[in-house]
Design a protein around this nucleic acid. Structure first.
Lengths: 240, 240
DNA sequence: CGGCCCCTTGAACTACATCAACGGGGGTGG
DNA sequence: CCACCCCCGTTGATGTAGTTCAAGGGGCCG
């Protein structure tokens, strides 16, 4: 049942019938293991299948001429990593494995069949893309107009809720397997500054981060500092 | 024929049949005029119809507690301004008219009908959302990792190509009716700094900007400075 | 004619980047 | 099994891109 993670993700949005569930299971024709650091998709590719994440963390990223890197999205289990490649055709960015991962493979042919015969599922997949876009917008806001501290706090709030939604939290703790350099590329900050901001968050008693585990130790205040409003995640189940 | 602008936009992506064209015309049940500065949609709204732009410029924006504003998207004629509200339901941001505008109104019921009966059109609408997301990602990259000059240059490249695609350019010139303060909110910069960057772009002979008209006077170099690659706009017509 | 916007300029400030260096831990090769 | 080395986190010092504050002038609208 490789599609279990995906189904759980889509169920955040709306109820899914047994028939739809079965179709998704069939659409995920196989699994693939990806090593840490490996690219799942490269800029310029024209994939013929889309991937959803079953275990692990992946990042979408862009490289600049100067060698700088910006991570534009972090994905967690259940996320459809490059669903848009079905419609967009040519990749304008790469997707790399932050950790060792397993992904489910859905051929574009299967997505096309769903789009031809399954309006409700198609809407949920569209919503998936729309929520990704909403998260992108939120990142634009936080990079553009918030301080490094607020921005970092905001990302921890977001990751906590997204991981909680797929059952990957324990109380206020969750696995967060990025290095500080990767976090810098996510936030648009230098590694050095990320390090100092993290020290500040720890000193203020807002989070702890040991090994790969982050614990939010003062959720109300972290949320307040970040000016965090979860609306953009569309985490409420309703008819779509 | 209020849907003409929308049809032209969708034709950037793929061919559209006459039947599809007619359906879109029927879906746009009426037009609406919006005054400059007015909100088309407000944060927290649960719209029952989506709007596409026929004439004018609009911006999606978010306000922070501190009163700061970040514009997360600029829309030009043909763009579907809040198509995603059909799927997302609750708006996490506002949409304001930068100039006086006319918009076409498409009830969500009509979108639902399309999603139930018109797979190909549904895919094109999904692509519309996906391209918005791709633009968002590009903005994340430019805000996060490019200098103010590069970032500003990038935006002008993007706006030029998007306006060209809907026939709203003349040579390298186009209407760009933002104030410098609005451009600052778009780029995540202060008004003062925007002013200085513009002077630099002008001094380098890259653009002119008088009144509401921008002319790109050195497209190759502007593109090079911006590290601009148009792939993210998906401006090639192909079967989807 | 008066009052806003909007653009522009100057000066001071600061958040973050950059450069450089070090220590610890874990994996790899000899 | 040990040695090495590379990655990762950390710290200090210095540099700078962009912010903030303040003010003036021009054009347009009421």
């Amino acid at each position: 049942m490789p599609a279990a993670a995906l189904i759980r993700k889509l169920e955040q949005f709306d109820r899914i019938s047994d028939a739809e569930r079965q179709l998704l299971e069939q659409a995920a024709v196989r699994q693939r293991a990806v090593a840490k650091g490996e690219d799942l998709v490269r800029e310029g590719d024209r994939p013929s299948e889309s991937l959803f994440l079953i275990t692990g963390f992946v990042a979408r990223y862009n490289l600049l001429r100067t060698g700088k890197r910006q991570i534009t999205a972090l994905h967690v289990p259940g996320d459809f990593v490059d669903l848009h490649s079905f419609l967009v055709k040519k990749m304008d960015h790469g997707v790399m494995a932050i950790t060792a991962c397993t992904v489910g493979v859905v051929p574009h042919d299967a997505l096309r069949l769903i789009s031809e015969t399954q309006p409700h599922l198609t809407r949920l997949l569209g919503l998936n893309i729309a929520v990704d876009a909403a998260i992108h917008r939120q990142w634009i806001v936080t990079i553009g107009r918030q301080s490094a501290l607020e921005h970092t706090a905001h990302l921890f709030c977001e990751m906590f809720l997204r991981l909680q939604a797929v059952g990957l939290t324990e109380d206020y703790g969750f696995k967060f397997p990025l290095t500080q350099a990767e976090l810098g590329d996510t936030l648009g900050l230098s590694t050095v500054h990320v390090n100092r901001i993290l020290q500040e968050l720890r000193a203020e008693g807002l989070i702890t981060w040991r090994g790969e585990t982050v614990v939010i130790t003062d959720w109300p205040r972290l949320q307040q500092i970040a000016d965090f409003d979860p609306t953009f995640l569309s985490l409420e189940q309703e008819p779509r």
